[in-house]
């Protein structure tokens, strides 16, 4: 028996939806955010209807049951049911969306705040466009010294940073669960691997209170590390972050 095209189309859409939920929520164990799923499904529906309507014949077959429902006198009973059901569904959906809940509103949070052109720390002003890690040059020139600096950076990290950012630098330190937003995961390809070292210096030295006013309100519990660490210690920690994760800082020079 040939399945009507409208039913086929609906089946494909429902199948893809179920597929997304099954794969992400159950097989991979990482839920698919509902906001993203809605966006995905909107264009999946568009794609399905494009395939089902690009020929005249197929388009006619697709809408034939709907046309029959509206126009065919013999379908009066089912028409009445559908015409009552659809507004009820829309009303139910609207009520659900509009009714107040105890859930905190979702936030449009950006991973990377935009850095200022210059930043003030340690009583000096740094130009972030030209600021470089003073120890980076030793990576090639004096590898032994560089290893030593990285080791020192590791010590500083373990003493100060791992409580939140984790001993594996994955943002899952002992205190992480108590913070919202959770601390940055440096292992993620979308974090320090995307950034220049000067950006990290700015974020570490000035912490949450140093975030730009332009994109307020920012929420961050990152301490102002210039009050606790020296400038050199911060640069050493930065060396350690990249070394441990195996990432390279963003740069414009070939090596």
């Amino acid at each position: 028996m040939k399945i009507p095209r409208l039913l086929q189309a609906v089946g494909v859409i429902v199948g893809i939806y179920a597929g997304f939920v099954l794969v992400f929520d159950y097989l991979l164990g990482q839920v698919i955010p509902s906001s993203l799923l809605s966006m995905y499904m909107f264009f999946v529906i568009a794609g399905v209807f494009m395939v089902y309507t690009f020929t005249e014949e197929s388009a006619r077959e697709l809408v034939a049951p709907i046309k029959a429902l509206v126009e065919d006198p013999s379908k009066k009973r089912i028409r009445n049911v559908v015409f009552i059901l659809i507004p009820l569904l829309v009303a139910g959906f609207t009520y659900q969306r509009m009714s107040p809940s105890f859930e905190a509103p979702v936030e449009l949070r950006s991973i990377h705040p935009a850095p200022p052109a210059t930043v003030k720390a340690y009583g000096k002003r740094y130009d972030l466009a030209t600021l470089k890690n003073p120890f980076r040059k030793y990576e090639k020139a004096k590898p032994e010294k560089f290893r030593e600096l990285v080791r020192e950076g590791g010590d500083i990290y373990i003493q100060n940073c791992q409580y939140c950012h984790g001993d594996k630098l994955d943002g899952r330190g002992p205190y992480a669960a108590g913070l919202n937003p959770t601390p940055l995961n440096f292992q993620d390809v979308g974090t320090i691997a995307q950034l220049q070292e000067s950006f990290l210096f700015w974020r570490i030295a000035t912490g949450g209170p140093g975030l730009p006013k332009e994109a307020a309100p920012w929420i961050s519990s990152m301490p102002v590390w210039q009050d606790f660490l020296t400038e050199e210690e911060i640069w050493k920690v930065i060396l350690f972050l990249y070394d441990y994760t195996g990432r390279r800082p963003r740069s414009w020079e070939h090596e």
């Binding site: 992400f24 991979l28 990482q30 839920v31 698919i32 955010p33 509902s34 906001s35 993203l36 859930e103 905190a104 979702v106 936030e107 449009l108 949070r109 950006s110 991973i111 943002g171 899952r172 992480a176 919202n180 937003p181 959770t182 995961n185 993620d188 390809v189 979308g190 995307q194």
Partner: peptide, 27 residues
Amino acid sequence: PHTLVLTNEELKALGGPYHKYLGPLGI
């Protein structure tokens, strides 16, 4: 998107704002 819009429930389920599989698609 690189930064996903997450409800608190989703945030809890993921253990943070990073999605292991969708995150890399954001760059």
